[in-house]
Protein backbone atom coordinates (compact mmCIF):
# COMPACT_ATOMS: atom_id res chain seq x y z
CA UNK A 1 0.00 0.00 0.00
CA UNK A 2 1.49 3.41 -0.97
CA UNK A 3 2.40 5.74 1.90
CA UNK A 4 -0.05 8.46 0.80
CA UNK A 5 -2.77 5.95 1.69
CA UNK A 6 -1.24 4.53 4.88
CA UNK A 7 -0.14 7.94 6.24
CA UNK A 8 -2.82 10.01 8.00
CA UNK A 9 -4.88 11.95 5.44
CA UNK A 10 -4.51 15.75 5.50
CA UNK A 11 -7.48 18.02 6.18
CA UNK A 12 -7.66 19.28 2.59
CA UNK A 13 -8.35 15.72 1.39
CA UNK A 14 -10.69 14.79 4.24
CA UNK A 15 -12.89 17.92 4.19
CA UNK A 16 -13.80 17.84 0.48
CA UNK A 17 -14.20 14.03 0.71
CA UNK A 18 -16.75 14.47 3.51
CA UNK A 19 -18.57 17.00 1.31
CA UNK A 20 -18.57 14.33 -1.43
CA UNK A 21 -20.31 11.89 0.95
CA UNK A 22 -22.94 14.57 1.58
CA UNK A 23 -23.37 15.22 -2.17
CA UNK A 24 -23.80 11.49 -2.83
CA UNK A 25 -26.54 11.23 -0.20
CA UNK A 26 -28.29 14.35 -1.56
CA UNK A 27 -28.05 12.86 -5.05
CA UNK A 28 -29.62 9.64 -3.71
CA UNK A 29 -32.51 11.79 -2.41
CA UNK A 30 -31.48 11.59 1.27
CA UNK A 31 -30.11 13.90 3.94
CA UNK A 32 -26.73 13.43 5.60
CA UNK A 33 -27.24 12.97 9.36
CA UNK A 34 -25.92 10.15 11.52
CA UNK A 35 -27.62 10.94 14.85
CA UNK A 36 -31.05 10.27 13.32
CA UNK A 37 -30.10 6.57 13.49
CA UNK A 38 -30.15 6.71 17.29
CA UNK A 39 -33.81 7.74 17.15
CA UNK A 40 -34.59 4.99 14.64
CA UNK A 41 -32.88 2.40 16.87
CA UNK A 42 -34.98 3.58 19.84
CA UNK A 43 -38.11 3.12 17.71
CA UNK A 44 -37.05 -0.38 16.67
CA UNK A 45 -36.49 -1.30 20.32
CA UNK A 46 -40.04 -0.23 21.19
CA UNK A 47 -39.62 3.36 22.47
CA UNK A 48 -42.87 4.26 20.69
CA UNK A 49 -44.77 2.96 23.72
CA UNK A 50 -43.30 5.71 25.88
CA UNK A 51 -43.30 8.73 23.58
CA UNK A 52 -44.92 9.73 20.30
CA UNK A 53 -41.55 11.17 19.32
CA UNK A 54 -40.55 7.63 18.38
CA UNK A 55 -43.66 6.98 16.33
CA UNK A 56 -42.16 6.80 12.87
CA UNK A 57 -42.00 4.41 9.97
CA UNK A 58 -38.50 3.11 10.56
CA UNK A 59 -38.55 1.19 7.28
CA UNK A 60 -37.99 4.56 5.56
CA UNK A 61 -34.82 4.95 7.60
CA UNK A 62 -33.22 1.60 6.78
CA UNK A 63 -30.94 3.31 4.24
CA UNK A 64 -29.34 5.32 7.07
CA UNK A 65 -28.86 2.23 9.25
CA UNK A 66 -27.19 0.52 6.29
CA UNK A 67 -25.00 3.63 5.84
CA UNK A 68 -24.01 3.34 9.52
CA UNK A 69 -23.16 -0.37 9.21
CA UNK A 70 -21.01 0.67 6.24
CA UNK A 71 -19.26 3.24 8.45
CA UNK A 72 -18.36 0.51 10.98
CA UNK A 73 -16.97 -1.66 8.15
CA UNK A 74 -15.17 1.42 6.76
CA UNK A 75 -13.50 1.89 10.15
CA UNK A 76 -12.41 -1.75 10.13
CA UNK A 77 -11.02 -1.48 6.59
CA UNK A 78 -9.23 1.75 7.49
CA UNK A 79 -7.44 0.34 10.53
CA UNK A 80 -6.85 -3.17 9.19
CA UNK A 81 -5.80 -2.54 5.59
CA UNK A 82 -5.10 1.19 5.09
CA UNK A 83 -3.01 2.08 8.14
CA UNK A 84 0.35 1.04 9.57
CA UNK A 85 -0.29 2.50 13.00
CA UNK A 86 -2.64 4.81 14.90
CA UNK A 87 -0.12 7.45 15.89
CA UNK A 88 -1.60 10.94 15.97
CA UNK A 89 0.86 13.79 15.35
CA UNK A 90 -0.45 16.12 18.05
CA UNK A 91 0.77 19.56 19.04
CA UNK A 92 3.54 19.08 21.63
CA UNK A 93 1.70 21.53 23.93
CA UNK A 94 -1.37 19.26 23.89
CA UNK A 95 0.81 16.23 24.59
CA UNK A 96 2.64 17.77 27.54
CA UNK A 97 -0.58 19.11 29.10
CA UNK A 98 -2.23 15.68 28.90
CA UNK A 99 0.93 14.09 30.31
CA UNK A 100 0.89 16.54 33.20
CA UNK A 101 -2.67 15.37 33.87
CA UNK A 102 -1.43 11.80 34.17
CA UNK A 103 -2.13 10.50 30.66
CA UNK A 104 0.46 8.10 29.27
CA UNK A 105 1.22 7.10 25.68
CA UNK A 106 -0.49 10.29 24.45
CA UNK A 107 -1.14 10.11 20.71
CA UNK A 108 0.06 6.50 20.35
CA UNK A 109 -3.49 5.41 19.52
CA UNK A 110 -6.73 7.15 18.53
CA UNK A 111 -8.22 7.11 22.02
CA UNK A 112 -6.49 7.20 25.45
CA UNK A 113 -6.54 3.89 27.30
CA UNK A 114 -7.09 5.92 30.50
CA UNK A 115 -10.65 6.53 29.26
CA UNK A 116 -11.43 3.64 26.91
CA UNK A 117 -9.52 0.53 27.97
CA UNK A 118 -11.27 -2.75 28.78
CA UNK A 119 -10.43 -2.11 32.44
CA UNK A 120 -12.34 1.18 32.32
CA UNK A 121 -15.23 -0.44 30.44
CA UNK A 122 -15.57 -3.13 33.12
CA UNK A 123 -15.29 -0.89 36.21
CA UNK A 124 -18.32 0.76 37.82
CA UNK A 125 -17.03 4.34 37.56
CA UNK A 126 -15.73 3.69 34.06
CA UNK A 127 -19.09 2.44 32.81
CA UNK A 128 -20.74 5.43 34.48
CA UNK A 129 -18.38 7.81 32.65
CA UNK A 130 -18.89 6.13 29.26
CA UNK A 131 -22.68 6.04 29.70
CA UNK A 132 -22.83 9.65 30.90
CA UNK A 133 -20.79 10.88 27.93
CA UNK A 134 -23.10 8.96 25.61
CA UNK A 135 -26.23 10.38 27.25
CA UNK A 136 -24.93 13.92 26.64
CA UNK A 137 -24.26 13.08 22.99
CA UNK A 138 -27.64 11.40 22.43
CA UNK A 139 -29.73 13.91 24.38
CA UNK A 140 -27.91 16.94 22.97
CA UNK A 141 -28.02 15.90 19.32
CA UNK A 142 -31.70 15.07 19.46
CA UNK A 143 -32.54 18.30 21.32
CA UNK A 144 -30.56 20.27 18.74
CA UNK A 145 -32.08 18.19 15.93
CA UNK A 146 -28.75 17.04 14.52
CA UNK A 147 -25.06 16.45 15.10
CA UNK A 148 -21.86 17.38 13.30
CA UNK A 149 -22.94 15.76 10.02
CA UNK A 150 -26.49 17.13 10.02
CA UNK A 151 -25.80 20.65 11.32
CA UNK A 152 -22.11 21.50 10.95
CA UNK A 153 -21.75 19.99 7.46
CA UNK A 154 -25.23 19.66 5.86
CA UNK A 155 -26.92 22.62 7.52
CA UNK A 156 -24.05 25.07 7.05
CA UNK A 157 -23.66 23.92 3.42
CA UNK A 158 -27.31 24.93 2.93
CA UNK A 159 -26.63 28.22 4.79
CA UNK A 160 -29.19 27.52 7.53
CA UNK A 161 -29.03 29.94 10.46
CA UNK A 162 -30.43 27.28 12.81
CA UNK A 163 -27.46 25.06 12.05
CA UNK A 164 -25.04 27.92 12.65
CA UNK A 165 -26.70 28.40 16.04
CA UNK A 166 -26.30 24.68 16.78
CA UNK A 167 -22.61 24.76 15.83
CA UNK A 168 -22.08 27.74 18.17
CA UNK A 169 -23.62 25.52 20.87
CA UNK A 170 -21.37 22.56 19.93
CA UNK A 171 -18.29 24.72 20.44
CA UNK A 172 -19.58 26.36 23.58
CA UNK A 173 -20.17 22.93 25.11
CA UNK A 174 -16.82 21.61 23.91
CA UNK A 175 -14.91 24.58 25.32
CA UNK A 176 -16.71 24.35 28.68
CA UNK A 177 -15.85 20.64 28.87
CA UNK A 178 -12.19 20.87 27.89
CA UNK A 179 -11.32 24.04 29.84
CA UNK A 180 -13.61 24.00 32.87
CA UNK A 181 -15.03 20.53 33.58
CA UNK A 182 -12.41 18.08 32.30
CA UNK A 183 -9.51 19.34 34.48
CA UNK A 184 -11.66 19.06 37.61
CA UNK A 185 -12.65 15.49 36.71
CA UNK A 186 -9.05 14.33 37.19
CA UNK A 187 -9.47 12.89 40.71
CA UNK A 188 -12.28 10.82 39.20
CA UNK A 189 -9.96 9.25 36.59
CA UNK A 190 -7.50 8.20 39.26
CA UNK A 191 -10.22 6.12 40.89
CA UNK A 192 -11.00 4.11 37.76
Amino acid sequence: MPTFITDPWPWYIAGPAIALVMFLLIFFGKTFGVSDNLRTMCTIMGAERYSKFFKLNWKNKIWNLVFTVGAVIGGFISVRFLSNNQEVALNSKTVSRLESMGFEAVGQSYAPSELFSTEVATSFLGILFLLFGGVLVGFGTRYAGGCTSGHAISGISNLQTSSLMAVVGFFLGGLIMVHLIFPSLLPFWNNI
Binding site: L136, F139, G169, I176
Partner: peptide, 17 residues
Protein backbone atom coordinates in the same frame (compact mmCIF):
# COMPACT_ATOMS: atom_id res chain seq x y z
CA UNK B 1 -29.18 21.24 22.70
CA UNK B 2 -25.97 22.09 20.86
CA UNK B 3 -24.16 22.92 24.09
CA UNK B 4 -25.21 19.65 25.74
CA UNK B 5 -23.98 17.76 22.70
CA UNK B 6 -20.73 19.75 22.72
CA UNK B 7 -20.09 18.69 26.32
CA UNK B 8 -20.50 15.05 25.32
CA UNK B 9 -18.48 15.46 22.13
CA UNK B 10 -15.47 16.83 24.03
CA UNK B 11 -15.79 14.29 26.86
CA UNK B 12 -16.08 11.15 24.72
CA UNK B 13 -14.12 12.60 21.79
CA UNK B 14 -16.77 11.35 19.40
CA UNK B 15 -19.89 12.60 17.69
CA UNK B 16 -22.44 10.02 16.44
CA UNK B 17 -20.65 9.12 13.17
Amino acid sequence: GGTIFGLGWALTGACPG
